[in-house]
Design a protein around this nucleic acid. Structure first.
Ligand code: FES
Ligand code: FES
Lengths: 140, 140
DNA sequence: ATAAAGCTGAGTAAATTTATCGGGATTACC
DNA sequence: GGTAATCCCGATAAATTTACTCAGCTTTAT
């Protein structure tokens, strides 16, 4: 039930981009240094983020990455899904995968995973980058 | 964000034990066959479950495993924790681990993971084995 | 005594994760 | 037009974890 480093780094990097949202594109090297993440590994993380349309890139000197939309329009769930695939505690509750136990209809445990999946999705989709950088003192 | 096979098998096996709660101890070999899980792998799963006090074992012929308490007294969260360790999306929000990003105090993302951890824990602790085997038609 | 069962540490093959490498493609600036 | 900053991206390597297997022991009903 752990996030991979990819997901963790990705969220941290996106938070950083949110903080720099008005400063023009931020070069990857800078993010890597400030967040203490391998530059080349970060490159691999930014590729899917860009393909998911969450960030825009600018090439050449003065280039870098920037959020594709305002921080309030990007959900943490979007980032996780782009980097780790569909949110689901077991494969068989995430569309189009082989179900390990075969008995999809009769399976008693399926309901657990569906509920867990829904709660996880729901929480991650109700937190935007604006929430993360703005109000560290919001309740719940 | 996936459960390992260990966790998934473990929950399925425990559900099976819950179904057999009044029948005396169930031999592992039977569970392995019915649930289509490697017998030897299941042995490795039952060890931590027993050490966590969730099941009792009876040795010798006519032996096997049985739930240590009534199905209503065993939470799915108990099973997951016994098999996968503390529920937490990243290590640093689960007591006594090294925090990868170092800046525990200032870390903006920490709040996300704490909330996620709490929601996951909460859900898994509000579902007991009795819920799983009893009412497949409960809402939410 | 026998056989049915649990108990357990060590070992292993495959998969996944976490990077690293090497080079290419764009573009601001001079 | 040359240079250097920067993104782009497939291939590969190292490390770790997962999912099992093996071999042999202990307990106990019959
Ligand atoms: S665990 Fe997938 S349907 Fe049962
Ligand atoms: S991710 Fe652990 S404190 Fe920031």
């Amino acid at each position: 039930m752990k996030l991979s480093a990819k997901g963790e780094y990705g969220v941290r990097a996106m938070v950083m981009l949110a903080l720099c949202y008005d400063d023009g594109p931020v070069p990857l090297r800078e993010i890597a240094e400030k967040e203490n993440i391998s530059y080349q590994f970060l490159e691999q993380i930014f590729l899917p983020l860009r393909r998911a349309g969450l960030i825009d890139s600018v090439r050449g000197p003065k280039g870098g990455y920037a959020l594709a939309r305002a921080p309030g329009e990007i959900k943490v769930g979007d980032i996780i899904r782009a980097l780790e695939g569909p949110i689901a505690p077991v494969d068989c509750v995430s569309e189009g995968k082989s179900d390990r136990c075969g008995r999809t209809e009769a399976c008693l445990t399926r309901g657990i995973w569906e509920k867990l999946r829904d709660r996880m999705s729901q929480l991650l989709d109700e937190i935007t980058l604006a929430d993360v950088i703005g109000l560290s003192a919001d309740s719940t």
